[in-house]
Amino acid sequence: MTSPQPKIRIDNVHKAFGKKKVLDGVSLTVSKGESLVIIGGSGTGKSVLLKCILGLMQPDRGAIQVDGEELTTLSTRERERVMHKFGMLFQGAALFDSLPVWQNVAFGLLQLGRMSRAQAKELAVEKLRSVGLKADVADLFPSELSGGMQKRVGLARAIAEKPEIIFFDEPTTGLDPIMADVINELIIDCAKDLGATTLSITHDMASARKIADRVAMLWEGRIIWEGPAADVFNSGNPYVDQFVHGRAHGPITDNAGR
């Protein structure tokens, strides 16, 4: 065997909406068990990249492989099978507001039809406990929860089917710093428990520093830098420098007269 096969391989992915190019040749690999964090400003296409990997959007061009299997050409049915490998925590948690919390968490398990509702509920309560929520939350509806609790439920739902790969879309955005750190630690713990590969996107540097093994920066539709998390604050790349230090002036904003 040569070097082990990457868990996720993204190769030269392009995506445009009308005339607007959002992704312009993104290439990335994530190895098994690694935690990669993609940083980048708002509207740079981070969510679009995740949705392309998940098949929620079709890229215009490029290859996306998971465990060496090409995803962009799969049929709907085959994709459903591959989806079982994935868990996703959405930016706004995206809980089903017509279902109580426990049915949200157990949704994937209930759809499989392999367990009774009582069993599924038991399992949901256990998952809720693992993200720090008490059993009495199970019967509430998502609208009755705070933002931080919704994120926790979203996390519980994402890990319920023991995915091999978990995606996090801005997991800490909109939370207070303490709750953000709680979520960061939950992400690390959950990924470690499952031995999962994680791909997170964020513009919260505290979060990136905490959860990343490796960091990549997306700008103008390309990955302009990637390296170990430890190097991100002295990357030598002026774009990365401006972003991670949150400066109003620098190459990112100077070229932004578009």
Binding site: M83, L95, F96, Q111
Partner: peptide
């Protein structure tokens, strides 16, 4: 429509539900 704009439909797909 609300499920669409709050990404609940995307969430369905990620939970292997058509």
């Amino acid at each position: 429509g609300t499920m669409r704009v709050t990404e609940q439909i995307d969430a369905l797909v990620t939970l292997s539900t058509n």
